[in-house]
Each structure stands twice: as C-alpha cells, then as structure tokens.
C-alpha cells in the first residue's frame, strides 16, 4: 500500500513548519469524483478487482498523487480534478499479478491499448474506469504567475483560485493547460469498461500551437544546438523513463553493461544519446500524454521529440498509437510498398 499525504508531523520534519496543511481540493468535479468513488467501491466490495488505481489528494497544492485503493473505505479517498495529470497506466506492468481497476483519461486509455497490443498483461485482469478528460492544468504555468509560494489551489467552474500567504489570484483555467492537453484530440478513452461521465466533444482547443512544427522551421544547426543545450541539463534521474507507461524493458539500454551503450557520467554527448534513443524507442507507441516532460525535474522539453515521431508514423504508416486494439504497432510489421524514396 502506498502512503498518502504525510501527516502534519511529517511536514515539520522536512523543515516546512511555516507551511500550513492546505484544505483539500473539493471543487474539481464533484459529480465525476463521486461516480468514480462509487464505481471503485462497488468493484472492490464485489471483489471484481484487487485494487483500484486512481488519484488521491497530493501532498502539495496543484498536485494529485496516485492512490492505490484496496478496500472500499480507501476508495473514499479517490479524487478527480484538473491536476490528475499523471499517466496511471505506468503502474500496470508492476501489478500484473493483480486484478486492477484503473482510472483512465483519453491518453492513459490509449497507453493501455498500446500495452495490451504488446501483450503486457491479460485484458481480463483489467477494469478501465474511463473519465472523459477536461484537459489538465500545468502546475508550472500557474506557479510562474503566482507572486509567492502557493499554499492552496482550488477549482471553481472555469477558474482556478490560487492562494498564498498574502495573495489570492483567480486564473482562467483554459489559459493554464498543458500544451499537450490544449491540442489533444482524444480526450475520450478509446477503450473503457465504464464511463464516469458522458463523452466530451473531440476538438483541439488551440490548433495553432504545434511545438514540433515550430522547431522544424529552424535551420538544422540551430535545431541541433537547441537539442544539445536542452539535454545537457539532464541529471539522468530517469524520471521521464519511469513516468512513461511504454518504458517497461527489464533492462533499459542505459543500464546495459554488455554492450555498454552509454557512459555513466553527465557528458553532453551521452545525455543527447540517451534522449534520442529514449524518444526513438517510442516510435509508433507513444500516446502523446506528455508524462515524460511533466516528470522532468529539470524542465527539459521532451514532447517535441515524440510529437515528431507520432506525426511521422501517422504520415508514413497511417497509424496512431492506442486507438485501435487490432492495429499492429507499425515497427513490428511492414507493407511491401512502404515509403522508400530515401533509399539509393
């Protein structure tokens, strides 16, 4: 069982005496939240699943933490709001022995479909609690406009109310979304056993913002320098790898010692190598959830890499990861008349 929010004592012990435990975020979407809880309780009390993975109250404002509920009482702790950004499909391969109820947004569901296609677990062991997604709020964007430390954040309709010691600001929710969420076209889970709310209309909020397209317009040398500069900040914590549901190799290429693909220090060329391969390994598998970029403590831009791969795969092989459970992953198959103009 995972630990939930630390007690007040725990706050003191990490030297945050001045921080008051903030009030729970209850304004998110009470109806969806209630429906998720009820479904989770029903599944757990009927023993249909061993545990339900959903979101619980985070230990900091603007955050939600993964919650592993094993009893109907624990399911009471489940929440739903605009900070439930993590991709919970990540936990599935570590829990393949259990019957799991999983709370999924559109992108999480796509990852689950892609994982099922790669036969990572038995579909019978899984119950997908689908939530049509309202698009998630980027906590870093909020933090940037806040004049001081944020002690409490809550949602009210289309506003986010952010409070600190001596300020209270009201923000328009739609202006503080993750860029991957702004352009998202698959907010409804393509695969779900049950839906917490009626499906939402699928349309991109802002279509103009295409990071990959902007990057592509730059001259090649500038692109390379930007890429090297970004990745040179990497501290090799591998949070991007751990947050990604598609990174499940028992031995990652960076950990391999025979052959040793990559040095163990922070040499920029090794960092670039790691980031090229990490992204490239997502070819035809990435649901574009943006979990890698959100997980990065150094705020290295990563989404523009997988965005490009996703677009190429769509262009070359007419494939989008996780939408159709019957489609084969593009790199595990071929067509005799695939694009080959680049070959001499």
């Amino acid at each position: 069982m995972m630990a939930n929010a630390p007690s007040v004592g725990a706050w003191k012990s990490i030297g945050a005496e001045s921080v008051q435990p903030f009030s729970p975020i209850r304004q998110g979407n009470p109806m969806i939240e209630q429906r998720i809880r009820e479904k989770a309780k029903e599944l757990l009390s009927r023993k249909d699943v061993d545990l339900v993975i959903g979101f619980g109250r985070g230990t900091l404002p603007l955050r939600a933490t993964p919650l592993f509920a094993r009893t109907p009482e624990e399911a009471e702790e489940l929440i739903w709001n605009s900070f439930c950004a993590a991709n919970l499909a990540t936990y599935l391969h570590k829990l393949s022995r259990f019957k799991v109820g999983l709370v999924v947004k559109g992108c999480d569901s796509r990852s689950v479909v892609a994982l099922l296609r790669e036969r990572r677990f038995e579909p019978e062991r899984l119950f997908l609690i689908g939530v049509p997604c309202q698009r998630m709020v980027d906590r870093r964007k909020v933090q940037r406009v806040a004049p001081g430390e944020i002690l409490d954040a809550r949602e009210q309709g289309d506003r986010i109310i952010v409070k600190g010691e001596d300020f209270e600001i009201h923000l328009k929710r739609d202006e503080f979304l993750y860029s991957s969420c702004q352009a998202c076209l698959h907010r409804n889970p393509p695969k779900a056993d049950w839906l917490a709310s009626p499906p939402v209309e699928e349309s991109a909020l802002t279509e103009a913002f295409d990071e990959a397209r902007l990057f592509e317009e730059r001259p090649s040398e500038e692109r390379w320098n930007f890429f090297i500069k970004e990745t040179s900040r990497c501290i090799r914590c591998y949070a991007c790898r751990e947050a990604c549901p598609m990174c499940y190799c028992s031995e990652c290429f960076v950990d391999s010692s025979r052959p040793k693909w990559i040095g163990s220090g922070l040499d920029p060329s090794d960092l670039a190598f790691y980031h090229i391969v990490r992204a490239y390994h997502q070819t035809g598998r990435c649901a574009g959830c943006g979990a890698c970029e959100r997980a990065c403590p150094m705020e290295i831009r990563l989404s523009y890499l997988t965005q490009k791969l996703n677009r190429d795969v769509k262009e070359l092989f007419e494939f989008e990861a996780g939408l159709d459970p019957k489609d084969r992953p593009p790199l595990s198959t071929y067509e005799p008349d695939d694009w080959q103009e680049f070959i001499k």
Partner: peptide, 29 residues
C-alpha cells in the same frame, strides 16, 4: 529488409529533425 526499411525511415527522419544533416545517414539496396 522490409522491417528494417520502416526503422530506417523513421530514424532518418527523426535524426534530420534533430539537426543531423540528411547526408550523414544513408541507405541503399
């Protein structure tokens, strides 16, 4: 070689996108 062709196609386009010049990595039959 068909499977390799798909890998090559995606890798080549990705490397060019990152800023490695098109002529650096080439393929032939």
């Amino acid at each position: 070689n068909y499977v390799g062709r798909r890998k090559s196609a995606t890798l080549k386009r990705f490397l060019e996108y990152l800023g490695i010049e098109p002529g650096r990595v080439q393929f032939s039959w």
